[in-house]
Design a binder for these strands. Structure first.
Length: 84
DNA sequence: ACTGAGCGG
C-alpha cells in the first residue's frame, strides 16, 4: 500500500520517516521528497508497505500525530502522477 | 524572514 505523508518538518528525512512506519510493520520503501535544485525538503513524502493491514494501522496511528515537532498528515497515496 | 498546502521519478 502506498502512503502519502504531508506537513513534515523540513528537517525530517526519509530514514526518520521509514523508522517511524517500521514501528507498525514492514516498510518496503520510504522517502521524503526533496527539491532537486535547492535540496530542501518539500515537506511531504511517501511510504510503501507490503502489508496492507499494517499500512492501515500505521495510517491510523500516525495521521495527525506529532512527528519531529509537526503534526503530520498521513493518508493513502494516489497513484503516481500519470505521465502523459 | 526560508516554510506550510500538498501527491514523487
Amino acid at each position: 500500500m502506498n502512503i502519502f505523508v504531508a506537513k513534515l518538518n523540513y528537517r525530517t528525512t526519509s530514514e526518520e520517516l521509514q523508522r517511524q512506519f517500521e514501528a507498525f510493520g514492514e516498510v518496503s520503501s520510504a522517502k521524503v521528497i526533496f527539491d532537486r535544485e535547492t535540496q530542501r525538503s518539500k515537506g511531504f513524502g511517501f511510504v510503501e508497505m507490503p502489508d496492507d493491514d499494517a499500512a492501515r494501522e500505521a495510517i491510523q496511528a500516525l495521521n495527525e500525530s506529532e512527528f519531529d515537532g509537526r503534526t503530520i498528515v498521513v493518508k493513502e497515496a494516489r497513484p503516481k502522477t500519470e505521465t502523459y
